[in-house]
Design a protein around this nucleic acid. Structure first.
Lengths: 161, 161
DNA sequence: AGAATACCCGACTAAAATAATCAAGTAAAT
DNA sequence: ATTTACTTGATTATTTTAGTCGGGTATTCT
C-alpha cells in the first residue's frame, strides 16, 4: 500500500466522477479541466481503473467514464491499489538466510503496519467521504472512522488467521 | 501525509532502534547491515529524524543513535512527516478563483481523507507495533515471519469488497 | 457514408523524487 | 594520537511520476 500523488490523482478523479452521478458519462477532458490533471495522464490512470472494474467506459461522442459500482462499493484502498504497483515491503522475501533475526522482525512489524493502513483504507468508501463532507457542513463533526476499533480489530483478525 | 518507501525506510530504522533498547547507542552502520539500507541514505534520513527530536545522537566510538523519547511517545505519523516533504494536496490553495466549485469539493474531500489517514497513523506508536507483534507470537507460536502469509493476506484484502 | 467525439494503446520524453556515493569535516573514546 | 562514528554538503544514478505524441477503435450524429 502506497499513498502517493499518483493515488491522490486517482482518488480525486474518482471523486469527480462520483460528484456527477447521472448526467451521463463524464469525459476525461472534463475531469482534466476541472481537476488540473493532464488528459494523457488521466488516460493512463483510467486504463488501470478500468482494468480493475472501478470505472466503466462509454465510447463515442457524449461518452466518457462512469463509476463501475455504487459509491458505497468502491473503497479508497481499491483505487490506490489499482494505480500503484505493489511493492515487496520486506526486501528479504527470497533470502535463504532470513531466519527471524532482528531484520525480519522489523520487516514483520512493518508488514503489520502496512496491513493496518490497508485495512483502514479498505473501509472508507467514496460514499463515506461524500457523506462525511455533508455531515461536516451540517454539524462539523464526523462519525465515520473508528480508529481505535480498527486497531483492535486487526489484532483479533490476525490471531484468528 | 505520504506513505512512501522513504517513510518505510525511516519506520524500519526506527523499529530497529526500538528493538535495541539499552545496549547503548546503535550505529548507522549496524542498521545499514541489518536492514539493507545504504549508510549514506540512512544519514540523510537520520538528519531529519534528529531535527524533529525523534532520535538522539551520540558521537564518537561506541556512539550512534537512540530513540529521542519512549517508544509510546513516538508515532508513525511523526516519523513519516519527518522524512517526507509536506505537499499541497489541493493544488488550488492559493488561487483566488477557487470558489468552492466541484473542483474544490473534491480537493476538500481529499483533504478530509488525508486527515483521516494522518489521524490514524498519529495513534499508532512504535510501542503499539511491538506489543501487537508480541500478542501475535503468543497466540500463533510463530517464530519466523511469514511473509507469504502477509502477501496472501494483502491480496485477499484487495479482492475483498 | 463521413465527420466528429472520446476512449484506447504503446512508445517516448521531461521532470521530480528516491537512493546512493563521495568528500571533508567534528566530537568523543581508547 | 588514532579510531570511531556522527555531521554536512555536493554530486550522481536510478526510479517514479507526469506529460507528450501519434496512432488507433467504437460510437454518435448529420
Amino acid at each position: 500500500m502506497r499513498l502517493t500523488t499518483k493515488g491522490r490523482y486517482a482518488v480525486t478523479a474518482m471523486l469527480d466522477l462520483a460528484l456527477h452521478p447521472e448526467q451521463g458519462p463524464v469525459s476525461l477532458s472534463d475531469i482534466s479541466q476541472r481537476q488540473g490533471i493532464s488528459l494523457s495522464y488521466l488516460e493512463q490512470l483510467f486504463s488501470k481503473l478500468r482494468r480493475d472494474a472501478l470505472v466503466k467506459s462509454v465510447r463515442g461522442p457524449g461518452g466518457g467514464y462512469q463509476l463501475g459500482r455504487p459509491i458505497d462499493d468502491i473503497y479508497v484502498a481499491q483505487i490506490m491499489d489499482a494505480v500503484n504497483e505493489v511493492i515487496d515491503a520486506t526486501g528479504c522475501k527470497n533470502k535463504a538466510d532470513c531466519k527471524n533475526g532482528v531484520t525480519c522482525l522489523t520487516h514483520y512489524l512493518w508488514c503489520d503496519l502496512s496491513d493496518q493502513i490497508h485495512g483502514f483504507l479498505s473501509k472508507i468508501s467514496l460514499g463515506d467521504l461524500m457523506r462525511q463532507n455533508d455531515a461536516h457542513n451540517k454539524v462539523n463533526k464526523v462519525t465515520e472512522p473508528k480508529v481505535d476499533d480498527q486497531l483492535f480489530m486487526l489484532q483479533t483478525n490476525e490471531m484468528a488467521g
